[in-house]
Design a protein around this nucleic acid. Structure first.
Lengths: 218, 218
DNA sequence: CGATGCGACCTAACAGTGTTAGGTATCGCG
DNA sequence: CGCGATACCTAACACTGTTAGGTCGCATCG
């Protein structure tokens, strides 16, 4: 009896993790391994082994390895949009900015692969498929910029910070740096990394204190 | 006549780019291809083709592909260290921090390829071979951290910012984000990028104002 | 001068990668 | 019962980094 038939019988006998959700099991395993070992380091064969399939079985459910990643990205990206939506309306634009930043960092920590794909890889000129579609990150940028503009209009920032674009790039960039460093160099044990969420929160707080008009805010 | 002997004769006849600098030519080509196509995407065979060698010739000069990357990183890092050394000594640690930041951003702008190689590519985990050797960037991090520690000791920061590591990661991370975004997404025309040096300077200034004790500093 | 050693480079091959072509068993349905 | 579709398999492709072992040319030394 081959390994294949053994696995098949095992699955029929109830050892399978589900009935017809091989697709989902592939995705689950792929996500875990992508995040833990990195995209390049995880092999199709390793994914297949974990679910007791042969590598080619994956190709019956997905176009290829890259398709696994993009499927995971698009599906998980909804989490960022949802998190931004959950912020609701906070009166003070600066405080709203701080909450948006926290949600942004949470997304990056929970979905590092997706974050890397969205914001850390030089976009390789989309294969002409859908050139008009904007990357998900642009929507996030617009939200931050509008929030900055609202803050400028409300007069909560020092007068020298009157450019919403520049302000948005300062806020976005500073938080991006914290999470990007963790994702790129987090394995480097020579640097005693602090908790990323806490570090990001303290950065946000300090930065906003420096941006605010003296005496403004809580 | 085999391809090998042809290439060898060509080199002997003066078509070579140097006499005994095969090592350097390998490094030059590798750096260019790593930066342009990414580390994983460039193959040893492609590097070898560009210098008209066979892939195995590279292994006579370097231990392997990874050794190419680390050698490039350490050599390029000297430029950053030199820039830091040129800062000299400024009395106020916070202001020194600001100047270090400016030098850091200048390095990133002037050497975007090297910057990407050093800080934006997820480095394969060191396999204990030479665990004692520091990876590039650690030296720069140490400089920033020591400067933060000096600032804490001098009492220029708010009392809640008493962790030099955390402070260093805040300062480094925020500036890294600005330049990393430009390098990764600078081509995205949907975002009206502001001048990177100016944006970074204003971020530094705002952040340090938020970190400083009230009334401290200029 | 001839032998020797050695460094630089080569050919051939290894195990492992993503992926594809084509075969086989199983299931639902007529 | 037959039959198509589905789900999965085996075998193989072209590619990757890397290694073992051979070849060539040159400097050195007896």
């Amino acid at each position: 009896m081959t390994i294949a038939t053994k696995a098949r019988r095992d699955r029929r006998d109830g050892r399978s993790h589900g009935v017809e959700n091989a697709r989902l099991r592939i995705l689950d395993v792929a996500r875990e391994m992508f995040v833990r070992d990195g995209y390049e380091a995880t092999t199709m064969r390793a994914i297949a082994d974990r679910i007791e399939y042969t590598p080619t079985a994956i190709y019956h459910h997905f176009a290829g390895k890259r398709a696994l990643l993009t499927e995971l990205c698009t599906s998980d990206f909804d989490a960022l949009a949802a998190a931004f939506g959950r912020i609701g309306s906070v009166a003070d634009p600066a405080e709203r900015l701080e909450r948006i930043g926290a949600a942004y960092v949470n997304f990056a920590v929970d979905h590092p692969m997706q974050y890397q794909l969205l914001f850390m890889t030089r976009r390789p000129a989309d294969d002409g498929a859908a050139a008009g579609t904007s990357t998900p990150g642009e929507g996030a940028y617009a939200i931050v910029r509008d929030c900055c503009a609202a803050g400028i209009a409300a007069g909560v920032f020092r007068s020298r910070y009157d450019d919403a674009e520049e302000l948005a790039q300062i806020c976005w960039g500073s938080l991006h740096g914290i999470v990007a460093l963790h994702i790129a160099l987090g394995d480097n044990d020579a640097i005693p990394w602090r908790d990323i969420r806490k570090t990001a929160a303290r950065l946000s707080s300090a930065l906003l204190r420096g941006l605010r008009k003296r005496g403004a805010g809580r």
